[in-house]
Structures are given as structure tokens and as C-alpha cells.
């Protein structure tokens, strides 16, 4: 019998970070042909520069990986992959946010050419404990975690260390013996280094856009959630990928006086990314002002005196 293709199931509740993880695994796979089965192409933001072609329910990437839509029959989509002559080296299935990943994993044994590798469940450290208490989905979130071979905490590069530590403790109590991984450490391993800018205060949008337009080329990706002085009632989502950047307002209001930290994380190749250089590059984006000044600033929306990032 030909060698079997290992199948992993990626589960986790809605918004846990499954598609982000899958997207990263797809774009960063090197020397291994991954096939990823997803519920909705729309939610997977594959970098346009990585797309080699699209044929109906399959998107091919330049690195040899493919992303396929599950459509309305997971089993058929999976068997189709198993029976391709140029089949993948590994298959990852995105379980729907409300699925029991263990049931999805049953499909891995449903074809002679496939074998179950593992069940990975993604959890968002900021929301997982609240979800686990929710009357509608609490039991499901706990069921998903309990069925995991590996639990991946997403967004640990953005969430503060205290929250991460607390949630790790919680998971260790909730799912005794759970294997835990932090998303930045996963798979793409030590190849990348990150640099973080965090500020309790809103950022200067003009300075930020100027900094993004001239980003050093060693930054392969950056992301963040920020607040800007020019529109203090909004949060902005920052994305940098493949040399392009975007800074888009979320469409829900936030109280201008609530404390939302601004966080930007830049990721680059280890050895190339120079934190000192980035400190300089983003100087002027975040300022230090007192609370009274801030209230005044938010009222006026004017530019405050420039001070270097501490």
C-alpha cells in the first residue's frame, strides 16, 4: 500500500484564530506540500503574491501548497485530495467553529490513503475563559479543548504576558495533561523574530502612516490594533504583508476615554530584524503625554509636541 497522507484537524471556536494559523502555515510552508481544507475561502486571506492560480474550489500557491473549499461535503473534498495523483504531503482540515474536532477527525480514517495525525485546537487567550463560561457555547469550547492533542494559544505575541500566563494555568487545570503551544513558536519555529511597540495612548496617525510607507524591507509581516488621535472613537487594524500595508478603522464605536492599548508587532527573519533600528523608525508615532493633556488632545485632535518613544 502506498504511504498514507497524514491528516491534522484544526479546531477551535469562532474567532479563536484558526484561519490566521492556517494562513500562516500555508504561506510559510517550506519543502512540504500542504493541502488545507477550509470552510470559506473568503475568510482565508491568502497573500495575492503567493497565489499561483485558482481552479474552482482550489487555490494553488507558488510554494506548491493548495487551499481547497470544503463545500457541503467534507468527506468528498477529503477523498478528492487523497485520490489526486500529485497528492499533498500533509492535509490540514479546518473544523467549523462549532464542530467537535474529534468527530471531524473520524474522516481521516475513512480512506485507505489517509491517516489521522493529530487534533489541534486553537484558543484565543483573551476570550477563551469567557467563552468556556458562556451558556450557549461553554460546554462546546471545553469539549473542543478536551479533545485536543495540542492546544495552540493564538495571538500570544499581541496579548500581554499576564493574560497568557493566567490562561495557561487555567487550561492546565481545565484539561489536565494538555500539550500547549504558543502560536509564534509553532512550526515556523525560530526562523522569525518579532519587535513590539505598545502604547497606552493613542498614536499619531500621520507619523504612523509615514513609518509604514517606508518600512525596512526585512519586515515580512506586521500587524496591530491601534487607536489614533485623529479618530479616538475607533480602533484601527493594521496589516502589513508582502510589502503592502493597510490601516483600517473598525466600524464599531469605542468610548474615547476607555483605555485600549495600541500594539504593533513586526515580524522579520532572525538575524535581519534590528530592534534598535525599528525603535528609531517608529519614533514619533507614540508619544508620552499626561492624562490631562490626553483629554485635551482628544477634544482638539491636534498634534501634540513630538517626543521620542521611550
Amino acid at each position: 500500500m502506498a504511504e498514507q497522507i497524514p491528516v491534522a484537524v484544526i479546531g477551535g471556536y469562532l474567532g479563536a484564530g484558526k484561519t490566521t494559523l492556517l494562513n500562516r502555515l500555508l504561506s510559510e510552508a517550506q519543502g512540504v506540500k500542504l493541502a488545507v481544507l477550509v470552510n470559506d475561502f473568503g475568510s482565508v486571506n491568502i497573500d495575492a503574491a503567493l497565489i499561483a492560480g485558482r481552479d474552482g474550489e482550489t487555490i494553488s500557491l507558488v510554494n506548491g501548497c493548495v487551499c481547497c473549499s470544503i463545500g457541503d461535503n467534507l468527506g468528498l473534498a477529503l477523498h478528492d485530495l487523497a485520490e489526486r495523483s500529485d497528492g499533498p504531503d500533509r492535509i490540514l482540515i479546518e473544523a467549523s467553529g462549532v464542530a467537535d474536532p474529534a468527530r471531524i477527525a473520524d474522516y481521516a480514517g475513512s480512506h485507505p490513503r489517509l491517516a489521522l495525525d493529530s487534533i489541534v485546537v486553537v484558543a484565543d487567550p483573551e476570550t477563551v475563559r469567557m467563552r468556556a463560561r458562556d451558556k450557549y457555547v461553554g460546554d462546546l469550547v471545553r469539549l473542543q479543548l478536551a479533545g485536543a492533542d495540542l492546544i495552540v494559544l493564538s495571538r500570544t505575541d499581541i496579548v500581554d504576558a499576564e493574560t497568557c500566563r493566567a490562561v495557561r494555568l487555567w487550561i492546565e487545570t481545565e484539561v489536565p495533561g494538555a500539550r500547549l503551544a504558543l502560536s509564534p513558536d509553532l512550526d515556523h519555529g525560530r526562523m522569525f523574530t518579532s519587535w513590539t511597540l505598545a502604547s497606552e495612548l493613542p498614536l499619531d496617525g500621520t507619523a504612523l502612516r509615514a513609518a509604514l510607507a517606508t518600512l525596512p524591507t526585512e519586515i515580512v509581516r506586521a500587524k496591530g490594533i491601534v487607536r489614533l488621535l485623529e479618530a479616538p472613537d475607533r480602533r484601527f487594524v493594521l496589516q502589513v504583508a508582502g510589502g503592502r500595508w493597510s490601516l483600517d478603522a473598525e466600524d464599531k464605536d469605542v468610548d474615547p476615554l476607555t483605555k485600549t492599548r495600541s500594539v504593533i508587532v513586526c515580524i522579520g527573519l532572525t538575524g535581519q530584524l534590528d530592534p534598535a533600528r525599528l525603535d528609531c523608525h517608529f519614533a514619533g508615532v507614540a508619544r508620552t503625554v499626561g492624562p490631562a493633556d490626553l483629554v485635551e488632545l482628544l477634544r482638539r485632535g491636534a498634534s501634540p509636541p513630538r517626543e521620542p518613544h521611550p
Partner: peptide
């Protein structure tokens, strides 16, 4: 025990 959602409550 409880059953399964077909769509996420948040959705």
C-alpha cells in the same frame, strides 16, 4: 450532555 450547534451563536 448537550448537542451541537449547526452555526455558531456569535455568527
Amino acid at each position: 450532555e448537550n448537542g451541537l450547534w449547526n452555526r455558531a451563536p456569535d455568527e
